[in-house]
Amino acid sequence: MPVSRETLQRAIAAGLVLDALPDSFNALGQRYSGKVRENFSADGQRLIVVSDRVSAFDCVLGTIPFKGQVLNQLAAYWFEVTGELFPNHMIGVPDAQVMRAVECEPYKVEMVVRGYLTGSSSTSIWRAYERGERSFCGHTLSEGLVRHQKLPANIVTPTTKAAKGEHDENKSRAELIELGVIDGPLFDQLEQQCLALFAEGQRLAAERGLILVDTKYELGRRPDGEIVLIDEIHTPDSSRYWYADGYDAAMAAGESPRALDKEYVRTWLVSQGFTGDGQPPTLPDEVRIEAALRYIETYERVTGRAFEPDLNPPVERLTSKLL
């Protein structure tokens, strides 16, 4: 049965959203709290609890009901179907909101792959192009392009991986090498692997009537030296999705394509005058619910499965399963 607005409203009212985890969870291992994920490392493994927190413009904004369950299960789906193309850190999924993974040494770079000239943040490729910049992360952009236009080819536009509360920075291949973040041969290897992975993601999304517009990949090195995907893959947090039908009509009309991702939250923030600086506005329940519906639809469209949320109180549920 589809998740209704009423179900989401009841979940908010009943406190069935996961924001923070109490200190009792520190027994799981060394703890690191990211913007969205709570990480616990012990004995060569990492337990990742995906909260319902939502972030945009590198700021934590509040919570969206069932978001953590959607992200975790969608990432698990993509890790499963792309594992032969690019290995990943996943070991298992002990709870709808939890992933068990191999402990990896993360690279201090995120490989952002873009297929379209779009974005709303000040660091996006579209904002750079709008400002008159014709070189972006080492890629030359031709004159006469319009917002949301498909690029001639998919490109990798890396960013530094910022600490919680700080902003990622766009960098070119040459800049990353100069900073000592990565060497040239390794960058070239990862670039080709990420482009191949993104192309496969686009192919599978197209079969579901969606356009995978852009995404970011985080990478780490396992103890055996193998480079793998970590964190998440092709989720509404890390990627943009548009509906394929209507894209051409939207472009012809000079309108934005219909989106099915976190861009809805970013667009609402921009309409409130927030683009990352200062105190973010509080997300009203109607925005949280609409965002939740979009996250859920992304999961269902991509996987072909109905989303069935676990309606048990999250902290109590996770305590019984993990501690």
Score class of each variant (00 low, 15 high):
Ser4Pro: 08
Glu263Arg: 10
Ala76Ser: 14
Ala291Gln: 15
Gly276Pro: 00
Leu18Gly: 10
Arg134Thr: 05
Asp43Ile: 05
Ile125His: 05
Trp126Tyr: 11
Asp224Val: 09
Ala291Tyr: 14
Asp237Pro: 02
Glu308Asp: 11
Ala205Pro: 03
Pro257Asn: 14
Pro158Glu: 03
Phe136Met: 03
Ile155Val: 15
Glu175Asp: 13
Gly68Phe: 05
Asn39His: 02
Asp95Glu: 11
Phe274Gln: 01
Ala27Leu: 01
Leu260Phe: 10
Phe40Ile: 01
Leu71Asp: 02
Tyr77Asp: 10
Ser135Cys: 06
Ile125Asp: 02
Gly132Ser: 09
Ser51Pro: 01
Val70Cys: 05
Ser120Arg: 13
Leu195Ile: 09
Ala101Ser: 15
Gln279Cys: 07
Pro152Ser: 14
Val50Cys: 08
Tyr77Val: 11
Thr235Val: 08
Met251Val: 09
Val287Trp: 14
Ser55Gln: 11
Ile233Tyr: 04
Asp214Arg: 00
Leu21Gly: 10
Leu283Thr: 03
Leu260Gly: 03
Gly115Ser: 00
Pro185Val: 10
Thr118Trp: 04
Ser271Thr: 12
Gln189Arg: 13
Tyr116Gln: 04
Leu16Glu: 15
Glu103Asp: 15
Ser135Ile: 10
Gly115Lys: 02
Val156Ala: 07
Ile289Gln: 04
Glu103Ala: 14
Lys35Pro: 11
Asn26Ser: 01
Ala206His: 12
His139Glu: 02
Ala292Ser: 14
Thr123Cys: 00
His139Gln: 05
Ser238Asn: 08
Tyr247Asn: 02
Glu207Met: 13
Val60Cys: 01
Leu204Tyr: 08
Asn170Arg: 15
Ala96Leu: 08
Asn26Asp: 02
Val181Pro: 02
Asn170Asp: 05
Asp224Tyr: 07
Leu195Pro: 05
Gln272Met: 09
Arg134Met: 06
Arg147Trp: 12
Gly246Arg: 03
Pro185Ser: 10
Val156Arg: 05
Arg10Met: 12
Pro106Met: 00
Val287Lys: 13
Gly225Trp: 07
Arg46Met: 13
Pro236Tyr: 02
Gly29Asp: 02
Gln9Val: 04
Leu47Arg: 13
Leu260Ile: 10
Tyr247Gly: 04
Gly144Phe: 05
Leu260Glu: 08
Gly83Tyr: 04
Ser320Leu: 06
Asn170Leu: 11
Arg203Ala: 08
Glu207Lys: 14
Glu308Ile: 14
Asp237Val: 06
Phe57Asn: 00
Ala306Leu: 03
Val49Asp: 12
Arg203Ser: 03
Gly44Ser: 12
Ala244Arg: 12
